[in-house]
Amino acid sequence: MTAPGPLALAPATAAALARWLEVEAATRDRSAHTITAYRADLLAFLSFLGGHHGAAATPRSLALLRQADMRAFAAAERARGLGARSLARRQSAVRGFLRWLSDREGHDLSAALAARSPKYARSLPRPLTPDQAREALEMVAAGHDTPWVAARDVAVMTMLWGCGLRISEALSLDGADWPFRDSLTITGKGGKQRNVPMLPVARDVVAAYLKLSPWRLAPEQPLFRGVRGGRLSGGQIAVALRRARAALGLPPSATPHALRHSFATHLLAAGGDLRTIQELLGHASLSTTQVYTAVDDAQLMKVYRAAHPRG
């Protein structure tokens, strides 16, 4: 029998997948990035089933799935080189779709849903120390021949470190968001909004950048602009920080996102509680924020082992 095409997607299955993605986006506030990832995960799964069974996957054939099918899919993905963390995410998306499909169609997919995801060690964030963060910003300030560009890069990075913003959140700000008040409303992942306290130092560095910027600030225009006037890209900030870390001898983990990690770990070290930090970061789940307690504990043990006489 000739295997079907690479996706092996029957029309009824394609319609079910499209509907599930719509439900996820509408009822669970999934971001566009997450929906795209889920679509890729399910297409990989359904394509595998098409080749595995020799026929396009349909809602009826999906009702007959067993643990052996799920294990075969996991084995195929691992053979392709997919890591444990990526495979766990892919299997989570598959289970979510199958659970929704079984509820809608009245199928019993408990056998397939019982398949376990691979265990993996969650990597810990690698924040900068307060001194490293300050030195990096100072190096960025002195690292560009064009003063307004240097001021812009410092302003963006200060928003990441001082306010805990994602780089995409900082770069999505427009002229209408200025001047900053005591707090700023940020639209994060999944369109969720949160209020972030605005430190005076953040207002000051943004004001310094705007004073030097050659571009007129307009409500509908980007707050942070590239050299040609368009919205600044995250890649330019990454380049500026890469140069600074090379000059300072900082590790490759010193990235723009590490400044956001630094915001969280520095707050925790100063006595901030996890719930508040969760709100400030815009995490949907407290478990995502709790990873910073592991960072704090790891640093504590590192200091203990270095300082203790029997370490």
Rank of each mutant, 00 (worst) to 15 (best):
S117L: 06
A142T: 11
D182W: 11
L64G: 15
R116Q: 15
G191V: 07
M159Q: 11
V156L: 05
G143S: 05
P127T: 10
A176H: 13
R71W: 10
S168T: 12
G96E: 05
S172H: 12
G188E: 08
R134G: 11
L165Q: 07
V149F: 01
R166G: 05
R152T: 08
P179T: 12
G175I: 06
Y120A: 15
L113P: 00
A93P: 10
F180R: 05
M157G: 04
G162T: 05
F73V: 08
T129D: 09
D131C: 05
S92N: 10
L171P: 07
L165K: 11
G188L: 13
S172Q: 10
I186R: 10
S172M: 04
R194L: 10
M139A: 14
R166T: 10
A72H: 02
R90Y: 02
W161C: 07
L65M: 06
V140S: 01
R90S: 07
G191I: 11
M157P: 07
R104Y: 06
R126E: 15
G143Q: 00
L101T: 01
R181P: 00
R104W: 09
T146D: 14
A112D: 00
R166A: 10
W100L: 02
Q67P: 04
D174A: 10
I186M: 12
F180T: 12
S86R: 14
T146W: 02
A68G: 11
Q132C: 02
R122W: 06
R80E: 10
W178C: 08
R71G: 14
P179C: 11
R71L: 15
A133Y: 01
G162H: 04
P127I: 02
L87D: 08
P127A: 05
G96R: 08
R80A: 15
R194C: 13
E169P: 13
L199S: 15
G188Y: 09
P127F: 02
F97L: 06
W178G: 11
D69L: 03
T187P: 04
F73M: 08
A74I: 11
I167F: 03
W178S: 09
L124T: 07
D108N: 10
A115T: 14
A155Y: 03
E135T: 07
R80C: 09
C163F: 03
A150G: 13
